[in-house]
Design a protein around this nucleic acid. Structure first.
Lengths: 335, 335
DNA sequence: CTGAAAGCGCTTACAG
DNA sequence: CTGAAAGCGCTTACAG
């Protein structure tokens, strides 16, 4: 590699001050266009690289966004949120921001320890991916850098949340079952654990109400305990003709449990689910599911972050992202 | 949030100089233990956060490690390497380093553009996760920060590589089939595409040689074309009694193809495979596979990075990580 | 259009 | 054990 080249060394080369170099490289006015392009060319050729620390010390902007995910959302080998991170990283890079990732351990969450990337002033903004304990989230009220909640929301504070319209898609997907003649429709998920599950459930419930179908609590199967750990699915004595599952993985498990008990999908029980992950394609039959339109969700999150950075005072409401249904082979038409 | 608190403000509080504060907070000698603990306590209480930019400007250490992944390794929703990243991030955090992620676009790779996190001097070291074009990798010869290749190696240069011992595990897994009485053993995978597949194949071949079993090229099924895109699996006229598949996903596909043709696993054909991903547990029967011991691989990568940072001159050879077999239900004992 | 000066918040080498 | 001084490489506000 070449010698270390700084603005000062460029300044010497051109016999100008480093102020001029700084202005030229940062597209600020106060330099003739000719000089500017010469300087840019030379900087490129000599492999000039800005010292982000020096700039940051002066401007208080590090051009880094923090992505925080709870360790418990990291499955062993794959996780829905990894994909989200990858895309988020790519999107932020287009906006000239680097992404610092950090996992939040259970210990940190319980002891209300802030992430290192924040503590060390490395980031200009923080995106929290996936719901955390309310007590922990309260740390971010009146925070000194912008914070965005991704894929969840809470009722306190005024931190922007970008969320899928779970309520509406729960409603739509249940409507689809009704349109196929189903009248006895169950739900799988512990509705006390996350707002996603709850909203999907409420959308489901709205559809039932609208179609004057009674809700039967025997048809509701829990999929996890109140701390979020998965539990075995227990089928009711009498099955409904269809189930709305709160996500693909649990739907996958439901198919297996049904098969073990001699029931077939969709012949005996129809299934709709959410997330359009690998589980919905690997299941037999492939499952009708909801694609969360995560690209759009990410896009909006990054946009809002940029706006909050340039104007921290601006308040954003909860932003709902429209998702869409992917129809596959897990619904049987009945009458 | 409280007022901005710096070393200077702490210095004023204690009526000492900021040198003393710096020494106290950084566990450097030259402060009485009593004063040190008082200072630490006050810093904690007042929410002092170090300014990483200021420290970095002075010391040239940003306490950030870059993780670079090619965009093409990012599957739609999940990818083997996302899991790797997540664990790597957690491990580096334990070592007091933050992780900056960046995806390498095809364009950047083709035009030999270095990642922004490097260009902006944000990172102290770079871990490249997954193989890239040789021409691009050559950019890192004699680089000014430590670079580590994760999960691949090349023959040029002397950049440390951390890789799974694919050759040995290919050998072991084939030995296992032989120990179960198999003499006709096929292989699934295009051995011309990646070094992993090739090494696994060579391990398989070594086992055949050692046991004086002939290699039958009719038993070798390709799973992808030379550009790496998956193709349909074509069964031979006559099947061997067992197959070594180059990864779980293709093994999953093989099970399906065999079933479609009326063959059962393991009754008609035994299968061993690699990676211990979700595919190996979702398949019916669950598949005997090789766990790549990725935790150890990550651990070693991070350790080597720390050593390279403190002593850049030290040279590391290619480091092989031992993996282990997970026995499940896809091998039938025959005689 | 150009530049001199100040300063961001640390750490280091040195002196006491 | 403690501190004064210098300096890391930028950007900003101001003067010319």
């Amino acid at each position: 590699m070449q010698q270390k080249v700084s603005m000062s060394s460029l300044a010497k080369m051109f016999n100008v001050s480093k102020v001029t170099i700084s202005k030229a490289l940062n597209d600020k006015e106060g330099v003739s266009e000719e000089l500017r392009s010469q300087i840019k060319k030379a900087a490129e050729e000599m492999g000039y690289r800005i010292n982000n620390a020096a700039r940051g010390l002066r401007t208080n902007k590090m051009y880094n966004i923090g992505l925080l995910i709870a360790e418990r959302y990291m499955g062993k080998t794959n996780s829905y949120y990894f994909g989200v991170c990858g895309k988020m990283v790519a999107r932020l890079a287009e906006l000239n921001y680097s992404s610092i990732m950090e996992t939040l351990t259970d210990k940190m969450e319980n002891e209300l320890v802030l992430p290192m990337m924040y503590t060390d002033r490395k980031i200009d903004g923080l995106i929290i991916i996936g719901q955390l304990k309310n007590e922990y989230l309260r740390l971010f009220h009146d925070f000194d850098i912008p914070v965005i909640f991704f894929d969840f929301y809470v009722n306190e504070g005024n931190i922007p949340s970008i969320v899928i319209d779970n309520f509406y898609s729960g409603y739509e997907v249940t409507n689809l079952l009704v349109a196929n003649g189903h009248k006895e429709i169950g739900f799988v998920g512990n509705i006390m654990t996350t707002s996603s599950i709850q909203d999907r459930f409420l959308g489901y419930y709205r559809s039932l109400l609208e179609h004057k179908l009674p809700i039967n609590y025997d048809y509701i199967i829990s999929d996890r305990d109140d701390t979020g750990h998965l539990i075995d699915l227990v089928l009711p004595k009498k099955l409904p003709t269809a189930y709305v599952c709160n996500n693909d993985e649990v739907a996958f498990r439901l198919v297996n449990v049904l098969n073990e008990h001699g029931f077939k999908v969709p012949e005996d029980v129809s299934i709709v689910t959410f997330d359009n992950t690998i589980y919905s394609t690997l299941a037999t039959p492939s499952l009708t599911t909801v694609d969360n339109n995560v690209d759009e969700e990410i896009n909006v999150a990054c946009k809002v972050m940029m706006k909050k950075i340039s104007n921290p005072a601006k308040v954003y409401d909860r932003i709902l992202i429209k998702s869409f249904i992917i129809e596959r082979d897990s619904i049987k038409k009945i009458n």
